[in-house]
Design a protein around this nucleic acid. Structure first.
Lengths: 228, 228
DNA sequence: TCATTGGTATGACAAATATCATTTATTTTT
DNA sequence: AAAAATAAATGATATTTGTCATACCAATGA
């Protein structure tokens, strides 16, 4: 199995402040796992005993609401780390992590993480920064969900998706989601999401190519997301 | 000014893991401030240079959405600490903190906090726990805002308010909010909030006494918040 | 005391969104 | 390739929620 020291993923996340020795320890203890599209990496309510570092692939983080509907809270991709919140607060996992495509993930045991947090102040601060940033994003999302109508939330979501996943060589947002998943992201009925996407296409703001979405008028979307 | 070592507030929050020397340092550097009802302790977008520890009083944490409406994200009270997210992520303040009644607050300079985080692993972990817990709550709220209809969100909010602020000697939720503030918490129009409160009173689930709300049938509210 | 103000309440109506039904397209299985 | 299953699209309609208008009430100050 490859060494953590050589993994380029670590350059992009909180692991970048680790010393050589700490990386060696992680390397020795880590396990590598492969998750198939549709499978769960973590499940809401379950305990967790380590940190996951995504080497490759995309996933949705979801919550099941009391009425049985799935709410997508967040999307993650290669370079993101998962499980830190649950490890730190010593609470069960809060969100389901479901692979949107086949994933390759590294697992680092909880104790190694906690030891390193105590020893390496900079690593500790980096992890805090990640969580702090996530909290800020979550607060923003609460406000948007509560205040914005569905059309604005859809516009916002499309811009977010392009921001997170980038575009493929045809200019399409580089992730494949079902209409239902888009609806579950913005918190609306699948039919409503479909209708609004159709409207956006008619208004020449987006293009629907195969299973992917291409933003053709980003400014229009930005204005729309702000209610203009 | 009183010493941090004697402050009972510290028993209830992340400050409880501080050593005697650390508390002394905080004591020497801290300043005490009084915020009148309606005034802001922190303002969205502003930089922050320390941690606030609420000794007494209640506040709402809000975000102004692009359409100019206020969204209440969270309520805080004596014993809660504020500003840790912003300090740690080195980002501007994310939420306005507005006093719901006169407040007494202690301010501890940022550098003291950062020094202590590096030196005291347990304090560091406690702060992380606080933020992690907040992130979990925020994620839950996203799901509720996105998936639940207004009536269920109101029921949920009333239960939350009683949980946070407790009840006074008449059994009323011990905080005074305007109808507009309740509406801004659940993300609806003021008139809708008023109407739904009136309905709840007619259904004998709550009682409206002066400016306060008394939950008279908690079970009914719980069921309602779950959509039954 | 009266007048003014801000918060609360309620009705009438409009707009947004969900639900149900049906059709069409796309993918998967046989 | 045909059949079956799943996903997407669209119309019709019901429900929820927001907006506007107006009335009411309670606190406050001249």
């Amino acid at each position: 199995m490859s060494k953590c020291g050589q993994c380029i993923i670590k350059r992009f996340n909180a692991l970048k402040s680790l010393t050589h020795d700490e990386l060696e320890k992680f390397s020795d203890h880590k396990t590598s796992l492969f998750i198939k599209k549709g499978e769960n990496l973590m499940t809401e309510g379950n305990p967790i005993n380590g940190l996951y570092c995504i080497r490759d692939g995309k996933a949705k983080l979801t919550k099941l609401s009391t009425n049985g509907k799935e709410q997508i809270i967040k999307f993650v991709k290669g370079g993101d780390i998962l499980g830190q919140r649950s490890i730190l607060s010593d609470e069960p996992v809060g969100l389901n992590t479901t692979a949107l495509e086949d994933m390759h993930v590294c697992f680092i045991p909880k104790q190694d993480i906690l030891d390193t947090i105590k020893e390496n102040g900079q690593f500790s601060l980096n992890i805090m920064k990640v969580i702090s940033h996530q909290l800020n994003q979550a607060n923003t999302l609460i406000s948007q969900m509560a205040q914005k109508p569905v059309k604005e939330r859809l516009a916002e979501t499309l811009l977010n998706l392009e921001e997170i996943f980038g575009v493929d060589n045809e200019g399409c947002i580089d992730v494949v989601l079902t209409r239902e998943e888009i609806a579950n992201t913005i918190g609306t009925a699948t039919e409503s999401a479909i209708r609004l996407l159709s409207n956006l296409k008619k208004e020449d703001v987006i293009d629907l190519i195969n299973k992917k979405i291409k933003i053709t008028d980003k400014n229009a979307l930005k204005n729309m997301s702000d209610g203009y």
